[in-house]
């Protein structure tokens, strides 16, 4: 166990070094959510109060930008793994005595750290432009940790597809899968204004609870139930995606 964690640490450092040496990838990961953040707030922000009773639409949208950025980062976990497979480097790692779980966990952890960094950038940008933070500095840290945890959980999707298929195109589907989940959540308007069928889908969508947990930290203050809902959703998401990843890893190395 201890050995596996040490190996994961070395592989995480390698993943982070990889990211630092490709700054263009990180710029894309931050640019797209920031662009949507700015455009959505610019387009709907002034009418959001009248339309669906949201006065601080900047704060309302900030968690959406965070989740978009995190999903972008985590989606690339699959691409990195496909690159390793194509280069033959994944075989090289499989040939070391490192536990196979560490080979996957190290890269996923690196994505978790990258997700935390992007979350911090978005939250600080939101604060500069007046989103506010009802839970103060503790809330800021909590959102950053939740961003990292969701990144870690979401990376499992791209990773499992990558291990299963070894195809870069398929691995990118990990990021694309995020959009239906986002649009079936109260990303742009509260759930209460949804049509009943959409409200039902939003209710069973785990993204809804992660979004709500972060949003309450920004707009409402401490709400233990909302926070636990978000953390439970992230944990559930992680359980499913990491199980899929382990199954894919087992099938690749069988």
């Amino acid at each position: 166990m201890r050995r596996g964690l040490i190996d994961s640490y070395y592989l995480m450092v390698r993943g982070l070094r990889d990211a630092l040496r490709q700054p263009e990838v990180e710029l894309t990961n931050i640019f797209i959510p920031m662009f949507f953040f700015a455009v959505t707030v610019g387009a709907i922000g002034s009418v959001a109060g009248v339309a669906f009773g949201v006065d601080n639409f900047l704060g309302f949208q900030m968690p959406v930008a965070v989740l978009q950025a995190v999903a972008g980062v985590a989606g690339s976990a699959g691409l990195g793994t496909v690159t390793d497979i194509e280069r033959g480097y994944f075989d090289k790692l499989l040939l070391t005595p490192a536990p196979r779980l560490s080979l996957v966990f190290g890269r996923i952890c690196a994505d978790g750290v990258r997700a935390m960094a992007l979350t911090a950038i978005i939250v600080v940008t939101g604060l500069i432009f007046g989103s506010g933070m009802e839970t103060g500095i503790a809330g800021v840290f909590l959102i950053i940790i939740m961003g990292g945890a969701f990144g870690l959980a979401y990376a499992g999707i791209g990773m499992s597809i990558a291990l299963r298929t070894g195809s870069p195109q398929a691995a990118q589907a990990g990021f694309l899968l995020f959009f239906p989940l986002l649009f079936l959540s109260p990303a742009f308007a509260p759930k209460e204004v949804f049509a009943p069928w959409l409200e039902f889908l939003a209710t069973i969508n785990p993204i809804t609870y992660i979004l709500q947990g972060m949003r309450d930290l920004v707009l409402e203050g401490w709400d233990l139930r909302s926070l636990l809902g978000a953390l439970a959703s992230i944990a559930g998401f992680a359980t499913v995606t990491l199980t899929l990843t382990l199954a894919a890893l087992r099938s690749r190395t069988a």
Binding site: R14, R17, D18, R21, Q22, D84, R87, G88, Y89, F90, D91, K92, L95, T96, P97
Partner: peptide
Amino acid sequence: RQRIGVALQEAGLDDN
């Protein structure tokens, strides 16, 4: 794996 060294057909390296 602890006792062997392996260089596979394609030099399996990380370019970055």
